[in-house]
């Protein structure tokens, strides 16, 4: 059987919010290493990769590798029934066709369980090549969310340009043009407030704002976000999930034709 107990149930609620705008359904692949999820959005322009390590769970048991196809809309409805303080347990029998979510209140005076039907998803797994990125930018996640929200008012595309001076986000459209320049933080007193840029070579790429805004639904997971860019390859937007894992979004660029 499979059983994973997470003391900080709120993390799973936040993961749900981070996935459900982009994905309708996905396979949760469980092994003794942990839980992995990888899926493309419907338009096949972006890919989401989630990893939750077994060690991050209060209790984790996976007798046999298990892939659980879930409708994320339904799963989101169930997770909305959990309070932020609840302990959340996911469990399933081997080759079961349902999964059960158990929510325990901190003082155990209320225990809820919800059983959900699983789906058969023949999801193909994509290989993500190891890449040594030309630029990586770490910045406060709230800052990135604000930039995406503000600039997406000006155009459907955003240009992200990274040089040794800093990183510039730009968008242009009918009402005009917006540019936001972030300089590398001079002093890094509070780690998560810093803007840290590692640049091997300057890079400038164009991306669709709507996907970037969908990625920022993960903002509540981590105080900082990391962007990785190389010429002509997908952007990576990564949010760490406490000490249990991460969610990574890959977005294909828009190319001058």
């Amino acid at each position: 059987m499979f059983e994973a107990r997470l003391l900080q149930g709120s993390l799973l609620k936040k993961v749900m919010e981070a996935l459900k705008e982009l994905l309708n359904e996905a396979a949760w692949d469980c092994s003794d290493a942990g839980i992995q999820l990888q899926a493309m959005d419907n338009s096949h322009v972006s890919l989401v990769s989630l990893n939750l390590r077994a060690e991050g769970f209060d209790k984790y048991r996976c007798d046999r590798n298990l892939s659980m196809g879930m409708n994320l809309g339904s799963m989101s409805k169930i997770l909305k029934c959990a309070s932020n303080e609840d302990i959340i347990t996911i469990k399933a029998q081997d080759n079961a066709d349902t999964v059960t979510f158990v929510f325990e209140s901190p003082d155990q005076d209320k225990v809820s369980d919800y059983e959900m039907k699983l789906m058969n998803l023949d999801q193909e797994h994509l290989g993500i090549p190891e890449t040594d990125y030309a630029c990586t930018i770490r910045l406060p996640s709230s800052e990135f969310a604000r930039i995406c929200r503000d600039l997406s008012q000006f155009g459907e595309s955003m240009v992200i340009s990274c040089t040794k001076e800093g990183v510039r986000f730009s968008a242009t459209g009918d009402i005009g043009t917006g540019n936001i320049k972030l300089a590398q933080s001079a002093k890094v007193d509070k780690e998560e407030e810093a803007v840290v840029i590692e640049m091997q070579e300057p890079v400038s790429l164009t991306f669709a704002c709507r996907y970037l805004n969908s990625f920022t639904k993960a903002t509540s997971l981590s105080k900082s976000v990391q962007l990785s860019m190389s010429p002509e390859v997908p952007l990576v937007v990564e949010y760490k999930i406490e000490d249990i894992g991460h969610v990574r979004y890959y977005l294909a660029p828009k190319i001058e034709d």
Binding site: H44, V45, L126, I128, S157, A208, Y250, A252, K254
Partner: peptide
């Protein structure tokens, strides 16, 4: 005009 590319152009079925 910028053309949106598919992610499957970069990542192939493992």
């Amino acid at each position: 005009k910028n053309q949106q590319v598919k992610i499957s152009k970069f990542f192939h079925v493992a």
